[in-house]
């Protein structure tokens, strides 16, 4: 009889991560010859984002997708890709992902979880109603923050950190509760940012990653060939995901411009210089709490990107 797994993700069906997951699941189902079926619960219809990891741990679902950097409070090694300006292009992001993987794997293993694959989000940029020529533009704005890193960033540039939950962003912008935020072009298209904001300045900022995980126990209960199949399909999903992310970075930004937003690409040099400084500060702050593992990771990363 066919085994049936459940998988939870918080993202909607149109999101490229979800599209990639569906392709991954189809590959597994087809390859299993009817021995394994996986039901995807998208849209947070089963579990909200913060409950997905524990959902896998407790057996409510066998597989799930998480935003890795959201677990920075649990362990700083999860959130290294959330440090602003540490990576500034996809090549660097790949290098960092490769170096971060063993640390992530080990920590997830301790929690009974198996890392199947990681896929990045496209670069982020500033959404504002005036052109961002330097960090001076952001000073004094009501800057939307959603985690410790963006909160610290807002403090460092002298903006007022403002917590607005995702669903209220459009209205908060339209009424002036916030007047600056940083997120990807993909998210900008998702919320149709052109309805409430004028300028998009893609600066890189972060390329955080989503991770697809499964319960180690559930995985080991499968026949060896099915385990192999899932891992192989995961590897292919990772390849596909990185390509999708790169393609999204381009097409979504084009979409913003096509809808009438002013996209400052490339961004002003002065802005990038100032951002690099802030990135340096925040990397050092992260190192202070990430301990020995963190130091090793950053050293290896810097050595590696100096070579490419």
């Amino acid at each position: 009889q066919a085994r049936r797994w459940q998988m939870a993700t918080a993202y909607p069906d149109g999101n490229f991560h979800t599209v990639n997951i569906r392709a991954f699941l189809k590959e597994v189902e087809d390859g299993s010859g009817g021995r394994l079926a996986i039901t995807l619960h998208s849209n947070a219809s089963l579990l909200r984002m913060p409950e997905i990891k524990r959902g896998v741990q407790t057996g409510q679902v066998q597989m799930g997708e998480i935003l890795l950097s959201a677990y920075g409070n649990e362990d700083p090694m999860f959130e290294v890709d959330g440090i602003p300006m540490l990576v500034t292009n996809f090549t660097q992001a790949r290098v960092l992902a490769g170096l971060q993987r063993p640390y992530v794997q080990r920590r997830l293993e301790r929690q009974g979880l198996t890392l199947l694959y990681m896929v990045p989000w496209p670069q982020s940029g500033f959404y504002t109603n005036v052109p961002v020529t330097s960090l001076e533009t952001l000073r004094g704005t009501r800057f939307r923050t959603f985690n410790a890193a963006t909160q610290r960033f807002a403090q460092l540039v002298g903006a007022t950190p403002t917590t607005v939950q995702v669903p209220e962003v459009p209205q908060a912008f339209a009424t002036g509760v916030v007047n600056a935020m940083v997120t990807s072009a993909a998210t900008g298209v998702d919320v149709q940012a052109w309805d409430f904001v004028k300028h998009f300045t893609p600066v890189g900022f972060t390329r955080t990653k989503n991770a697809v995980i499964c319960s180690t126990r559930a995985l080991q209960q499968l026949p060896a060939d099915l385990q192999r199949l899932i891992r192989d399909a995961g590897e292919r999903a990772e390849q596909r995901g990185w390509e999708l992310a790169q393609e999204q970075e381009r097409t979504r930004q084009e979409e913003l411009a096509r809808r009438g937003m002013i996209v400052a690409d490339p961004p002003p040099e002065r802005l990038m210089r100032e951002l690099a400084q802030i990135g340096e500060t925040m990397t050092n702050e992260w190192l202070a709490k990430a301990g020995e593992d963190g130091r090793k990771l950053i050293e290896a990363y810097r050595a590696a990107i100096a070579r490419v």
Partner: peptide
């Protein structure tokens, strides 16, 4: 404002402002 419209807008990727 409407909570239900926000839920639908996020799920269907339709502009909440619209």
């Amino acid at each position: 404002p409407s909570i239900i419209m926000i839920v639908y807008g996020v799920a269907a990727e339709v502009s909440i402002v619209r």
